[in-house]
């Protein structure tokens, strides 16, 4: 089972947990990505996400399906925020469930790594003296 969400509203760890929990599973692994207050020594004041929603949802689902196949997971939940976020806000939640814990740890790490590589979502960081799209330029 895959549970995919792109939302302008605050994300719910409980919702992701509930989406993947199952009596057949002995392990659930959660990753929560949050907005930190500095990047490369500069103070970050806040951040905005831009997203190509239709393709982002498609890519998130593809990654979740591939993770289930590769790691033998029972279920995968991938929720990502859009819009303006403040320091400490939750940007992304990955939850995966499996029969044993090793697959859950490995699958969860794989999903967030893949999401960062291919899902068309962009982060604009606002510093005290300007703003820039993260990773766009050398």
């Amino acid at each position: 089972m895959e549970d995919i969400l792109l939302s302008a509203d605050p994300l719910s760890i409980d919702a992701c947990y509930a989406a993947v929990q199952d009596p057949s599973c002995g392990g659930i692994c959660l990753f929560v990505g949050t907005i930190r207050n500095q990047n490369k020594g500069a103070v970050v004041t806040h951040l905005e996400f831009s997203s190509y929603d239709a393709m982002a949802l498609r890519e998130m689902r593809r990654i979740a399906e591939a993770a289930r196949e590769m790691h033998g997971l029972h279920a995968v939940s991938v929720h990502h925020r859009t819009g303006a976020l403040a320091i400490g806000d939750v940007a992304v939640i990955i939850a995966v469930s499996s029969v044993h814990r090793a697959a859950a740890f490995a699958g969860c790490a794989w999903v967030i790594d893949e999401l960062k590589k291919s899902v068309p979502i962009w982060k604009k960081e606002f510093l005290e003296d300007g703003s820039y799209w993260v990773g766009a330029r050398p």
Binding site: R58, V92, K117, S118, G135
Partner: peptide
């Protein structure tokens, strides 16, 4: 809505999008 390969032929009405380096998560 899919990453395109260089050799794919464009069709009228395709939804074409430039995807700069992504930075979600």
């Amino acid at each position: 809505e899919l990453y395109a390969l260089p050799e794919e032929v464009l069709e009228p009405g395709d939804e074409l999008v430039v995807i700069p380096p992504v930075s979600g998560g």
